[in-house]
């Protein structure tokens, strides 16, 4: 195994002693097959125990270790050193308040995820004795790509709309809403539209597409948002032409299977 000396320039922020984030450099002896997370772990274990960052699975599944590496938001467990130069700059995800070092505040994102009702909303309550859902592979294929999100927030880090307006629900949460909207078991699109089709929902997106470019799981949030725009536009004009169709809760009566 060959060893490579790499300089890691890490953005540090310790709110109890610093008013502004500052860069700190570490020289790390790295193995060629390491990822950036391994180098950070080396720093934590051998050079500086005060460095704070989040990680868990080390296999691009948990979504905890999203950070900006040489200006690109990525999972540090998927950022192979063999693909990077000898000088690597590591920063916390952009567009979020820094909590400490490479850790950002998650509260806003978590609230937004919850706000889009990311769970199945069937027309009729489903009981255990009803048995299992039946779903064809074609129906599964419709939503599966949008179900791959691991909430790493890389898309929020590059989204210019989220940077301009922090009220924007954002790519991952809107893609997740779309994932349920196009699920054949779900009839909750109308219930989600109060948030999804508001001025801070899909309509804030101007289709820059950066979210889809950086997603480490190949979710395509930009496509999800555009598809939701089409469905919401159809709903908008339906409501305008047939205002009596909506019940008191604001949910329109829908035929089963009309989830797209």
């Amino acid at each position: 195994m060959s060893e490579r000396q790499i300089t890691l320039e890490v953005l540090r922020y310790r709110p109890e002693s610093e008013s502004e984030p500052v860069f700190q450099s570490y020289s790390v002896p790295c193995q060629e097959e390491w990822v950036v997370l391994d180098a950070l772990n080396y720093i934590k274990d051998n050079l500086d125990r005060t460095l704070s960052y989040r990680w868990s699975c080390h296999m691009a599944v948990c979504g905890s270790c999203g950070m900006v590496i040489n200006d690109n938001p990525m999972l540090s467990c998927k950022a192979f050193l063999r693909d990077l130069p000898d000088h690597i700059r590591v920063e916390p995800l952009h567009n979020f308040p820094i909590e400490r070092d490479l850790m950002v505040e998650l509260d806003d994102f978590m609230d937004k995820l919850k706000s889009v009702k990311p769970y199945l909303i069937p027309d009729q309550p489903v009981a255990e004795e009803d048995g299992t859902y039946r779903q064809s592979s074609a129906q599964l294929k419709k939503y599966k790509p949008f179900a791959m999100c691991i909430n790493c927030m890389a898309c929020y880090s590059v989204c210019p709309q989220y940077g301009l307006n922090e009220g924007f629900v954002g790519p991952a949460a809107l893609a997740l809403a779309h994932r349920y909207n196009v699920d054949s078991r779900d009839q909750g699109r109308r219930a989600r539209e109060d948030v999804v089709a508001s001025n801070t929902g899909i309509w804030e997106c101007t289709f820059v597409g950066a979210c889809s470019e950086v997603c480490p799981k190949n979710v395509d949030p930009a496509a999800a948002i555009q598809q939701t725009k089409i469905a919401s536009t159809v709903d908008y004009f339906k409501d305008l032409l047939m205002p009596g169709k909506r019940d008191k809760s604001g949910n329109a009566k829908q035929a089963a299977g009309d989830g797209a």
């Binding site: 539209e193 109060d194 089709a197 508001s198 001025n199 929902g201």
Partner: peptide
């Protein structure tokens, strides 16, 4: 939250 009126211009 109120639903947006943007579908009109976005539709065009």
């Amino acid at each position: 939250m109120a639903r947006s009126n943007k579908p009109i211009v976005w539709g065009l």
